[in-house]
Computed example of a mutant assay.
Amino acid sequence: MSSSEPEHCPGIDSEQAGKSAACAGCPNQGVCSGGELRSAAKDTEQDYYEIARKLSSIKHIIIIMSGKGGVGKSTVATQLARFIAFNDSESNVGLLDVDICGPSIPKTMGVENEEIFNSASGWSPIFVEDNLAVMSCGFLLESLDDAVIWRGPRKNGIIKQFLRDVDWSDELDYLIIDTPPGTSDEHLSLVSYLKFCQNVRGAIMVTTPQEIAQMDVRKQIEFCRKVKLPIIGYLENMSVFVCPKCSKENYIFKSKSTRPSTLEEKYGIKLLGRLPIDPIIGKSCDEGKSLFNDNNKLLDNRIHQAFEDLWNNLCKEINQSKE
């Protein structure tokens, strides 16, 4: 449609759409008078209500975002989901991968060779643990090496299906949604489809210490504010490298600073935690294994403490947002 509208445009929802005197000369008059746009708008709103109904039993929906690729967003989403499931065996966790063109969650979760099945109750997610389930576009590909060359409408369609048709069960406590970097069709579709959901707690921004990464996060903050998506806080990944021999802290990307970042000072976005650089984190994702299990003797206490801090701060922010 043309972006220009008559001064007194009745709007596509009006019975006078395309028929009012104000519509004379509008390039969209024929489309509006036919009712196609009004019908499409009603169908779309019905989708919103259907998705809200489908997801209403989930206690908390958390969206993981990053302004730039390569900052460890999917790693954070993966290990956060694993930490919650391990730390609280009574909580049921779902991890939804809506990075349509780069679905890495099946690999990081170690379930890349699994297939999903469709039943009368919807698509069945893949269970990694008894209380941890995963759904990703990667399960729909013949090979994870296949390129996904889809235009916006098809991406939107699969996201709608993931939100509406996946059978997470009625006892899901946390749904963590991993998104692609930047602000693209996937983000707009996701936020739109969750429009009527009352259990969306907000977004966690993942960044690294250097300014170029935080610059893109600031753009994503503006995106969230424009679409009215709450921001829970941000996580600084790859914050510090601790030498395994001498335990000296090395700030590879940026010098250590006791001052708040511009994300806190200018935007009021709270720091949820800092994750160190450690080879075991990358290794666990490459091998599709959890950092958190009773048999992991190599896990540095700093890593466990970092996720503990993230989890505690996340719970605090969620509880405050509900008040």
Rank of each mutant, 00 (worst) to 15 (best):
I177F: 13
S290Q: 08
Y49Q: 14
E265P: 07
V200D: 01
K226Y: 09
G34R: 14
E264R: 08
F223T: 10
R225N: 14
Y251P: 07
F241A: 15
G138R: 05
E287L: 05
G268N: 06
K270Q: 14
L163S: 07
E236V: 03
I318H: 11
Y234C: 09
S20P: 06
G11E: 09
K107I: 15
D309H: 11
K289T: 09
K42F: 12
M65W: 04
D294K: 05
L80W: 06
S3Q: 11
P103K: 03
G233V: 00
C32L: 10
W123F: 15
G268V: 09
W311K: 08
N295Y: 07
L190N: 04
K160P: 01
I64Q: 06
E114G: 00
K155S: 06
S261P: 04
C26W: 05
C23L: 05
E142T: 10
S284V: 14
E211M: 07
D146P: 08
D99Q: 10
A306I: 11
D173S: 12
L188Q: 05
V98D: 05
P106N: 11
P125F: 04
V217A: 01
N319Y: 12
K256L: 13
G282D: 04
S4E: 15
A24E: 15
Q320V: 13
I232S: 00
Y251I: 09
F241I: 09
G69Y: 03
K107Q: 15
I64N: 07
N92D: 02
L310A: 07
S104P: 07
V76M: 07
A213F: 02
F117T: 14
C197D: 11
D97M: 02
L37R: 10
L37T: 10
E90W: 01
K228G: 05
N295H: 09
M65P: 02
K316F: 12
V240S: 08
G34A: 10
K226A: 12
G35Q: 10
V217R: 04
I303Y: 08
K226M: 13
D13N: 11
K226H: 15
N296D: 05
S104D: 14
Y49K: 12
K289E: 05
Y267C: 11
V227K: 05
T207M: 00
R225F: 10
I63N: 07
A133K: 10
G202L: 00
H60E: 02
I61K: 11
D286W: 00
G182L: 07
L163G: 03
G30F: 15
I12A: 12
G67T: 04
A24M: 08
Q210D: 01
K195Y: 07
R201E: 14
E115P: 01
D286F: 04
N28R: 05
Q305Y: 14
L55E: 03
T262V: 11
P230S: 06
I63L: 08
Q210T: 03
G110S: 03
I177A: 04
A40S: 09
E129Y: 01
K316N: 14
P103G: 07
G102Q: 02
L163R: 08
P276Y: 01
F83K: 11
I281K: 02
P106D: 04
N250H: 13
I212M: 06
S247R: 11
L314D: 01
S56P: 00
C32Q: 10
D216C: 06
L271T: 04
L272Q: 04
R164K: 12
D167H: 13
R82F: 03
C32D: 06
Y267D: 15
P276Q: 02
T262I: 14
G34Q: 13
E308D: 12
N301Y: 13
L95F: 02
Y251D: 15
K289I: 08
I277H: 01
